[in-house]
């Protein structure tokens, strides 16, 4: 019971920390780190939900009678989520590299202001 509470609380805590870092922080690298933390929180939550008391990894071993196994579906989903999370992270980091080269700053509000100013200039 206690383990479950700790696991769920830490997973949800990670989720909320990630969302906070994305929404309230201004540094782009911190936004991206927040995205990574958010992902791990979601993955941990999914795997924790699929846990069964005394369950084994869902892999059959030749010559052994299978005992109780954990739910394999969240594990397959999390495997997918990790792979896609990697792709999103790589793309985000590549974009940050370009932002830094173009604007010389990683402050997301400042970048947004400059983008607005540039589009105003382009219109006028």
């Amino acid at each position: 019971m206690m383990t479950g509470l700790i696991l769920h609380a830490s997973a949800i805590g990670l989720l909320l920390t990630g969302i906070y870092a994305i929404a309230a922080r201004r540094h782009l690298m911190r936004n991206i780190l927040g995205l990574a933390v958010l992902e791990s929180g979601a993955n941990l939550l999914l795997v924790a939900i699929g846990y069964r008391q005394g369950g084994h990894a869902p892999i059959l071993v030749a010559g052994q009678t299978p005992g109780p196994m954990v739910d394999p579906i969240p594990q397959a989903l999390v495997l997918t989520a990790i792979v896609i999370g990697f792709g999103v992270l790589a793309l985000a980091l590549a974009l940050v590299v370009r932002v830094k080269e173009n604007y010389g700053t990683l402050d997301n509000r400042e970048v947004a202001e400059r983008l607005r100013a540039e589009s105003r200039e382009a219109r006028s």
Binding site: L7, H8, I12, L16, Y20, Y51, R52, Q53
Partner: peptide, 24 residues
């Protein structure tokens, strides 16, 4: 943001609490 996070946390906790841990 704090309000939103608190609300979301409460929602998630309630959701998770409906599935007892260790009994997927």
């Amino acid at each position: 943001s704090a309000l939103f996070l608190a609300g979301l946390g409460l929602l998630l906790f309630n959701l998770v609490a409906s599935i007892p841990f260790g009994h997927a």
